[in-house]
Write a protein that binds this DNA or RNA. Sequence first.
DNA 1: TACCAGGGCCTTT
DNA 2: AAAGGCCATGGT
Length: 283
Amino acid sequence: MENGMKIGLDLPPEDFDLDAVFGCGQCFRWERREDGSYAGVAFSKELVVRREGGRIVLDNVSADDFEGIWRRYFDLDRDYRVLRRRLSADPVLRAAIDFAPGIRILRQDPWETLCSFILSQNNNIPRIRGIVARLCACFGERLPGGGYAFPPPEKLAGCGPDAFAPLRAGFRAPYLLDAARKVASGAVDLGALDGMDLAAARASLMTIRGVGPKVADCVLLFGCGRLESFPIDVWMKRVLGACYACGFPKALWPYGGVAQQYLFYCARLCPERLGAAGIRPAV
DNA sequence: TACCAGGGCCTTT
DNA sequence: AAAGGCCATGGT
């Protein structure tokens, strides 16, 4: 089934760091392989991404899929150098960006993002990944390469709560079901979020049980490309407390979500870089 | 407002 | 090997 082509993107590590993009906690379905490449599924398409010198290579991709899916998914039309320059005006952000400049904000499927972050609450990343993987294996369509698509809301909406038992999602299972029902019925229209102002989009998402401000903001940031959406979780509270006693700079507000992601990643892996060694014992 | 809700990863003994 | 802390939170 080698009907696609190899696509090479002229993106050095500072513009696209595979480990940072896939490891910074914005997505849960990409797996690192022995050779440093990543295999994953998005929008029902399987893909392997790898670095080849100064280039990012997508293997076996059709021109249609590249233009229709991956260009947007990887946010390829945005110049992150401009973004980094702008955010670097702040010294704390400069340090975070120095640590991992090659983070990009993925534009994922809003439904998958919604489910993923419902499952993320009071949970750790390895286990979130496990639950999402079981969700796809149990309810998702089998794909040619052996992977699974993310199951659509209609597929989950008809389930009884016990159908989710194999996921071992705990208290989050009923939240997932409520999300599926509200989205499948049209009570929440994910496709309409793009045309709404941030507050209205947030309010719409928060009508779903188990979706509060933080989860809603994650959906808007990682699933709708709303870079001004600024999710505040326990880690961000720590960073804000330790580094921004006087408040987060207003001037950076339009890209608050990107800033948040640089800070989140750095805070977890290397808090001392932020001058906030205390927020976690050094690894 | 404080506390509680699966379950398991991970670190410490 | 066993124990306990901790988790990209939100509902009550």
